[in-house]
Simulated scan of single mutants.
Amino acid sequence: MYEPIRTKSVHTPACPDPDFPHRSREEELDIQLAGHLAALLTVTDELRSLTPSGDLDTAAERLADQVARLRGGVQPVRATSAAHGGDAQIAPLHRRAHALAGRALVVAASRADTAAAILSAERIDAHAAASAEPVAAG
Rank of each mutant, 00 (worst) to 15 (best):
G85K: 00
E133Q: 14
Q32L: 07
H11T: 01
E28K: 07
G72D: 11
H22F: 02
P4L: 15
G102L: 02
A136K: 15
V43R: 01
A112K: 12
D125T: 05
P76T: 12
L47P: 01
A39D: 07
H98Y: 10
A99P: 00
P16H: 05
L119S: 05
P16T: 02
I90F: 09
V43H: 00
L56I: 10
L47G: 01
P92A: 02
R48G: 14
S9I: 03
V74A: 15
L119A: 09
D17V: 08
A64Q: 06
S81D: 09
L70I: 07
A39M: 08
A117V: 10
S81Q: 12
A64L: 09
G72N: 07
A136T: 14
Q89G: 00
R123G: 03
R69C: 12
S131L: 15
K8F: 07
R95G: 12
A83M: 10
T12H: 07
Q89F: 05
I124F: 08
R96C: 01
A34F: 02
A34G: 04
P16A: 01
H36E: 13
H127A: 03
Q66E: 12
R69K: 15
I5W: 07
P4D: 14
R6D: 06
V77P: 01
R103Y: 06
A39R: 08
T51G: 04
E122N: 13
P134Y: 01
L29I: 02
A59L: 10
I31E: 05
H36C: 07
R62H: 09
G35H: 02
L29E: 02
P134F: 00
S81L: 14
V135E: 09
L33D: 00
R71L: 09
D17H: 06
H84Q: 15
D19V: 01
V67S: 04
G86L: 01
A91L: 14
R48K: 14
D55K: 13
P21R: 03
H36F: 11
C15W: 13
A121W: 05
T114R: 15
A137E: 14
A117F: 08
Q75W: 11
R123L: 15
Y2L: 13
V135P: 00
P92H: 02
G85F: 00
T80R: 12
L47V: 03
A14V: 10
R96F: 01
